[in-house]
Design a protein around this nucleic acid. Structure first.
Lengths: 196, 196
DNA sequence: CCACCTTACTTGACAATGTCATCTGAAATG
DNA sequence: CATTTCAGATGACATTGTCAAGTAAGGTGG
């Protein structure tokens, strides 16, 4: 392997290791020593690829934002499903991160990841979501609806994550949310379903 | 001062010191040594009052939740203002914490504070909010509306905090949120105002 | 093929921090 | 006043982020 290749491989291994450790044991489990060990290198190696630990964590957040942006773009391009379902899919994608990788979700919205790079990546996601909303309510109203929808989806995810939506009565569905905000109707009859 | 009095005073001083350090310098500034120093005691003193650092931080979160619960209860009891305004006030109180004490807000919803005690305190807030909602939409519909309203308010606060609602077009107001969700109408005409 | 340079990575070291065992002095008790 | 109790102080230790110095393998010129 050429030198540049080994370096790139190591960098990927470091990111992968950090991501796995975050998912498995939360933020406290992500020590540079543990990351290095899992990546097959030693504790100081990350400094050859990232300015410091925060930059490594920020990279995890940026990757997550980029994945979300890609998924939103994919959804929008999929003309086989109705616009409404595409929008709901985008919101659910955000919530899915909170469910599948709660620590990563927390990282995406936490201070260490609030560097300009991460905010920029998040803004790209916002743009994609805005487009999804525009497909439903039109360009003119998209910003107002979009902000409410994104905030609400993020809120549902975060509250659920913090254990504040556990009680049966507090379950909330994204479909309900979209229905109420976009169609301007009261919540549908019957049981409120679990989001998803 | 009797021994119990000095102990209680020290405990209060520790909580106050931790709170101030959190507000001033974020989570990293809250070291037990700094807390002790500001409280006029030494680094090991907190262990006489809290099981460990996390328990001290949890106490900060619990206090914040309790303040919110009190404010919601006060609002609900204030019959001089219309029910709608009371509900908006409750939601705004949550957002106000995010604006005035962003680090505290993050702590309230972060893992270290997700202990049973903190969740219980948060549940009391939820109950108060639920009552505020019930005063507007009735007992039957309160849970569904309440979950959406609380999640949305939390989402607005969190997104704003993370710098994801900075763009002019993304500003969102609580009044708009309540209006859309409760009255089932499209967002009002004209500029979307800043929440608050 | 060899001497030299470049660089990804390792290792030793250090300061900061959370935590605990031990100690101390003053309050409480009889 | 003697003794007990307990809030708080202090020394010590492991862990961690960080960096300077060292090392060895990849790359380059002759």
């Amino acid at each position: 392997m050429t030198r540049a290749e080994t370096a790139a491989t190591t960098r990927r291994a470091l990111i992968r290791a950090a991501s796995e450790l975050l998912d498995e044991g939360g933020p406290d489990a992500v020590t540079l020593r543990a990351v290095g060990a899992r990546a097959g290198v030693s504790r100081g190696a990350p400094y050859g690829h990232f300015e410091n630990k925060d930059h490594l964590l920020t990279q995890l957040a940026v990757n997550a934002w980029n994945s979300l942006a890609e998924e939103a773009a994919r959804l929008r391009a999929n003309l086989e499903i109705p616009v409404r379902a595409r929008l709901e899919g985008g919101l659910l994608a955000l919530i899915a991160v909170a469910r599948r990788q709660p620590h990563l979700f927390a990282l995406m919205f936490s201070t260490p990841a609030n560097t300009p790079v991460a905010v920029e990546a998040a803004d790209r996601v916002a743009s994609e979501f805005l487009a999804l909303v525009a497909d439903v309510v039109g360009e003119a109203d998209a910003p107002r609806y979009g902000a409410l929808l994104m905030s609400s989806a993020y809120g549902i995810a975060g509250m659920e994550l913090g254990g504040h939506l556990t009680k049966e009565t507090w379950h909330v569905s994204v479909e309900q949310l979209v229905h109420m905000l976009v169609d301007h109707t009261p919540p549908g009859p019957g049981e409120p379903g679990r989001a998803g």
